[in-house]
Design a protein around this nucleic acid. Structure first.
Lengths: 232, 232
DNA sequence: GAGTGGTCTAGACCACGGG
DNA sequence: CCGTGGTCTAGACCACTCG
């Protein structure tokens, strides 16, 4: 036993060190919680907390009875913080402006209906808007909202506040699916973003669910040059 | 007190329900841990575990003394699993093939040197390779490795196994930075990916560090149509 | 200063799943 | 079967930070 290590962060760091130094090699089992607790001179719960954190971040594989092993291929999990647009812009020190381009209740394409798991002859609310940073187009937002699951939608002042923000504080939801990809801007899309046709745009598609009901689906097309960063 | 709730997952679900039902509204404080433990008939540690999980996922804001509040703008954190290319392809049921195009020791551009926090007249190993799925180009990999921090690099059989996989099991690292964006393919880049010039490509740039030393930086340009999904 | 979350402990029981 | 991680408990002390 080296010395008493008290906090779970210290245990985590020591385990990281052993993995990093190849003292515990990828694919190999490490001592069980009880032994480590003994070695570190702390409670098993403390070791558990540390190992659980490491497993969460993908550095360890844990299975009952099989024990804990150093992950063979440390699955690289990156936590992306999907920004609230206005916050993101203001945190960069830029002036935020929001412009509602269109707000129509109409039939959605089959692709949209499928994505939202909807059927039949229904109308949805389509909102198209541009978010500006220092008066330069930052991102175009193309959103569909199901009025049936969002009460009060028709009274929403979407000309003043973005649909995203209004929904955040007025519509409950339970989870989201998100897909990120790249696309080439059409001439129309490029004009909206102050870009040239054919330029590459970063795209985020998000569907927000309330239980089994799709609340809203949105496609965000960012002006060329946008990037999203993370650390892990 | 409603009834005894034993597991921390049950507590988490109940808290989620109350937030979702607006019983606890965004921005408002919720009872402290001790009170909740009393109400739920469980130990405070159990409540703590549940609330900590909810705070981690961005649904709650917790501060000592200030207490716990329902997050005003639930920061939407998406956990992206950055795939090991071969795994990703094989998990889709496709045949994986790797082709080393070039392997040269040479001077890197200033941009690369800056990103890796390197200075001076140094040569780095540049590896360019294509990963195929069912013999169709899937992603182009343009990588720079610092030989000074990766011992044994010159003997690595990079014609047989991808640099990523070799590095994973041969070079220690402590953390990575990642940036994702979109770009338009040049004619050359398009040819490498079996695409047309001007098409949009999803790009991942990653720098891997070992302490304060940059081990490697890589740019991945995915064939048009690629997307990355997450749920949260 | 005092209330709140953050953490540690020692012990206990349980559920999963490998052998 | 039975070892391992997963979890719960009751109590305690600590650290941060708001008022």
């Amino acid at each position: 036993m080296t010395k008493t290590i008290k906090s779970w962060q210290a245990v985590e760091q020591e385990v990281r060190r052993r993995i990093h130094s190849r003292e515990w090699a990828p694919g190999e089992p490490i001592p069980n919680e009880a032994d480590l607790a003994l070695e570190f001179g702390c409670a098993r719960a403390t070791v558990n907390r540390a190992l659980r954190a490491l497993a969460d971040s993908g550095l360890l594989d844990r299975r009952r009875k099989a024990g804990t092993r150093v992950a063979l291929h440390p699955i690289r999990k990156a936590v992306l913080e999907i920004p609230v647009i206005r916050q993101e812009i203001e945190e960069k020190g830029l002036r935020y402006r929001y412009e509602l381009v269109e707000r129509t209740e109409k039939r959605a394409s089959k692709a949209i209906m499928d994505r939202m798991d909807l059927v039949g002859d229904r109308s949805l609310l389509n909102v198209f808007a541009i978010h500006f940073a220092n008066d330069r187009p930052y991102v175009a937002e193309d959103r569909w909202i199901d009025p049936a699951v969002v009460p009060g939608l028709s009274e929403a002042p979407l000309d003043r506040i973005s649909a995203n923000e209004w929904l955040l504080s007025n519509a409950p939801y339970t989870r989201s699916d998100i897909v990120i990809s790249a696309l080439c801007l059409t001439a129309t899309q490029a004009r909206q973003l102050g870009a040239s046709a054919g330029q590459a745009s970063f795209r985020i598609e998000r569907i927000t669910w309330d239980g089994d009901d799709a609340v809203t689906t949105v496609e965000l097309r960012f002006a060329p040059g946008y990037s999203l960063g993370a650390r892990f």
